[in-house]
Design a protein around this nucleic acid. Structure first.
Length: 360
DNA sequence: CCCTAAATCAACG
DNA sequence: CGTTGATTTAGGG
C-alpha cells in the first residue's frame, strides 16, 4: 500500500504564502500592538510569517498601498523617532465589526495552532523514519505477518506513541465520533461561522447540510457505521490486501476544541464530517435520496464513488497516514522552513489501488 | 463569460 | 513613507 501526496512538492519550495490578505495581516498587527509605524508593521508581520522574511520587498509596497487605500486604517501622529506616522485601526467601526473581528481572530489562532500541530507531526514522522531505518537494519521482516496487537489508539493522543498496527489505527479511523460534548453557546456560534466559510469555499450545494449542526442530539456523523468489531475486521482486510479497490482518505481531525469538525486540506475552513462524507459521495444512499438531512442509515460504504476508476469503496479516516507507519511517496525530509506553510501534512492522502496507478 | 476583490506594478511628491 | 492610478490575477456566479 502506498499513499500519494496530492501535491508534488518541489524541493525548492519556499515557505508558503500565509492565507491572509494584507488587510488582515495589518489588522492583526495593529490590533495586537495598538499603534505601529509602517516599518513596525513590516516587522510584526515578518516576525511571525517566514514567507515575508525574504529579501523581496514587493510585499512592503503592498502593505503601504493597503494602508492608504483602506479606510479601515487611519494615520495617526508622526512617529516619535524618525520615520513616518503611527497607524492604527479606525475606531469608528467597532460596532458590528466585532463579530467579524472575532472571526478573524479565530482564523489566526487556528492557523498557528495548526502550524504547531504540523510541527509535532513532522517530528513524529522523522522519529518514525529513524525508528524504521533502525529496525530494518537489524531484522528481516517477513511481509506476511503483521503484529496485531490490540492497540487502542482511540482518540489519538498528542505526539507520543507511534503505533504500527495498521489495522488498529485504520480502525480507529472513521466512525469514532469525536466526543459529543456540547460546550455552551459559544460553540454554536462558532459552528455557524464555520458553515458560512464553507459556503464561501466549497463548490457544492450545502443546503442539505445546513441544519446538521442544529441537532446537537447525537446526530454526529458515523453513528451508524460499522461496529467496532466489524470495522476492525474490515480494516484488517483492507490493509492485508483482501479488499481491493479501496481508497482511504485521511482527513485530519482538528483538536478537541473543535470536536465537531474535520479538517481537510483547508484547515482554516473546517468542514463538518457529514459534509465531507456526503459531498464526496463517500456514502451514497442506495435509493439515491439524500435529502431530509439526517437519514444516513446505511453504513456499508456501498457508495460507488465517482473518483478513481469505477466503483471503489471509500473510507474516510481521521488518522494521519504517517501514524500508520505508511511511507509517503516523496520521502523527503522537509526543511525547517518548509515546515511552516507546507501543505504536505494538511492534505488528503489517497491510497491506493493495487493494480492501477490512479492518481488523485 | 463577466464581475469583484485582492495583489502587483509603477510613478511621483 | 504615503498617495494614487493602472494593470493583472484569482475566484465565484
Amino acid at each position: 500500500m502506498w499513499l500519494k501526496s496530492k501535491t508534488n512538492h518541489r524541493k525548492t519550495s519556499r515557505p508558503k504564502k500565509p492565507p491572509f490578505t494584507y488587510t488582515e495581516l495589518i489588522e492583526y498587527a495593529l490590533e495586537d500592538k495598538g499603534e505601529l509605524t509602517v516599518s513596525g508593521i513590516y516587522q510584526w508581520i515578518s516576525d511571525r510569517f517566514p514567507y515575508y522574511k525574504s529579501n523581496d520587498d514587493r510585499w512592503k509596497n503592498s502593505v503601504r498601498h493597503n494602508l492608504s487605500i483602506n479606510p479601515h486604517f487611519r494615520k495617526g501622529v508622526k512617529a516619535p523617532q524618525g520615520a513616518g506616522h503611527l497607524w492604527a485601526i479606525s475606531s469608528g467601526d467597532s460596532a458590528e465589526n466585532v463579530l467579524a473581528w472575532e472571526h478573524k481572530k479565530q482564523r489566526l489562532d487556528l492557523f498557528f495552532k495548526m502550524e504547531s500541530i504540523n510541527r509535532e507531526r513532522i517530528q513524529q514522522h522523522q522519529q518514525q523514519q529513524q525508528l524504521q531505518q533502525h529496525q530494518q537494519q537489524h531484522q528481516q521482516h517477513s511481509p506476511q505477518q503483521k503484529q496485531h496487537s490490540a492497540a487502542q489508539q482511540q482518540h489519538m493522543p498528542q505526539a507520543s506513541s507511534c503505533m504500527y498496527d495498521e489495522a488498529a489505527v485504520a480502525v480507529a479511523t472513521l466512525t469514532q465520533e469525536m466526543m459529543q460534548t456540547n460546550s455552551g453557546g459559544g460553540s454554536t456560534e462558532t459552528s455557524q461561522q464555520q458553515q458560512q466559510q464553507q459556503q464561501h469555499h466549497h463548490h457544492h450545494s450545502h443546503q442539505n447540510h445546513q441544519n446538521h449542526n442544529q441537532h446537537h442530539q447525537r446526530l454526529l456523523p458515523f453513528n451508524d457505521l460499522l461496529s467496532d468489531d466489524e470495522l476492525r475486521k474490515t480494516a484488517g482486510q483492507i490493509l492485508n490486501g483482501i479488499h481491493r479497490e479501496v481508497e482511504v482518505q485521511s482527513v485530519n481531525s482538528i483538536i478537541s476544541t473543535y470536536h465537531d469538525v474535520l479538517l481537510d486540506n483547508d484547515y482554516l475552513n473546517p468542514i463538518h464530517k457529514d459534509v465531507v462524507v456526503t459531498e464526496s459521495v463517500l456514502r451514497q444512499q442506495h435509493g439515491t435520496n439524500l435529502g431530509g438531512g439526517n437519514n444516513n442509515q446505511n453504513n456499508q460504504m456501498g457508495g460507488n464513488s465517482h473518483m478513481g476508476g469505477g466503483n471503489s469503496q471509500y473510507y474516510i479516516t481521521e488518522i494521519d497516514p504517517m501514524e500508520l507507519g505508511i511511507q509517503m511517496s516523496h520521502q523527503v525530509e522537509p526543511s525547517e522552513e518548509e515546515v511552516l506553510f507546507s501543505d504536505e501534512f494538511n492534505l488528503n492522502y489517497f491510497g491506493y489501488n493495487p493494480g492501477s496507478d490512479i492518481v488523485a
